[in-house]
Amino acid sequence: MIGPNGIGKSNLLEAVELLGSLRSHRCSNDRDLIQWDTPQALIRAEVGDGDRLELELRRQGGRQARRNGKLLDRQLDLIGPLRCIGFSALDLDLVRGEPALRRQWLDRVVLQLEPVYADLMARLNRLLRQRSQLWRQRQISSAERHALLDAFDVQMALVSTRIHRRRQRALHRLEPIAQSWQTHLSGGTEALELHYKPGSRLDGEDAEEPWRLAIEEQLREQREEEERLGSCRVGPHRDEIALLLGGSPARRFGSAGQQRSLVLGLKLAELELVTQLCGEPPMLLLDDVLAELDPTRQQLLLEAVGESHQCLVSATHLEGFGGGWQQQAQILGARELRPDLQIG
């Protein structure tokens, strides 16, 4: 998709992402996804084996998901036929940015591995919100507050243990794949390590029960600090995934080029693992990102995905794309993207 800025290329990719994963990486509020001054938006797609998917967003009231015209009780059931993985300029922050971005990257993978994970994350977030509201309540006695904190601790310890274990397992599976991409992309000069640094101390043997007890203990111990600082100091919401190149943190010591290769390697690892798990290659959404790669890395990406994956690529200019890409692609210009605008 080639066209000037503002023609709606990213919108189209975002719509595909939303239909495939029920979320958008750019925006978390449905109201901002609907065209201004219209009450609703509809995304409709027909995928490979004839499935018709529909997602309706409404300014008032929630979403409605339909598959082959049938209204789905659970929107989650829309996920599956259209798996997609997005690459965008924002991904560069995966190495440089906040730990939350790396957690999100890992969470996307875990979610593909185990759908129950969505429920665990929802519970953790709800518990954290309830817990911080509890501290703000002034009218309750200290004994009462601690009795309620006990009730939150028990639940948080269990949910946290399960999230930690799943994230750790997923990272173990991602590491060798990311390492082999790193070798491929950088010519094998620096070894990559993905270190899981959990936000709780995971004492004792690697099993659910000892970890759960350890975390419950830590939650109790940190209460004074929690009261002072206003946030819970223990749990998966404080996880970090350290990316080490040749033993030092890529976040601080990597060059811009190294960081770019690393991001590409991590995303390709995500792609490869999801492909392995689902048995079917997901669709790739490359939003304004290919042109930012030098020809060598473009070529590597093309070799990695070009044969087996359908890609939707957006860019402002066709120049800068290697010949291989152009030959295999169907190219849509501004006229095809927005017939209503009548661009000369």
């Binding site: 009795a147 009730a151 939150f152």
Partner: peptide
């Protein structure tokens, strides 16, 4: 739910 479980745990101990 989180709220139901919290209430159950709280009442249980009480």
């Amino acid at each position: 739910s989180v709220e139901g479980d919290t209430t159950s745990l709280y009442l249980g101990r009480l």
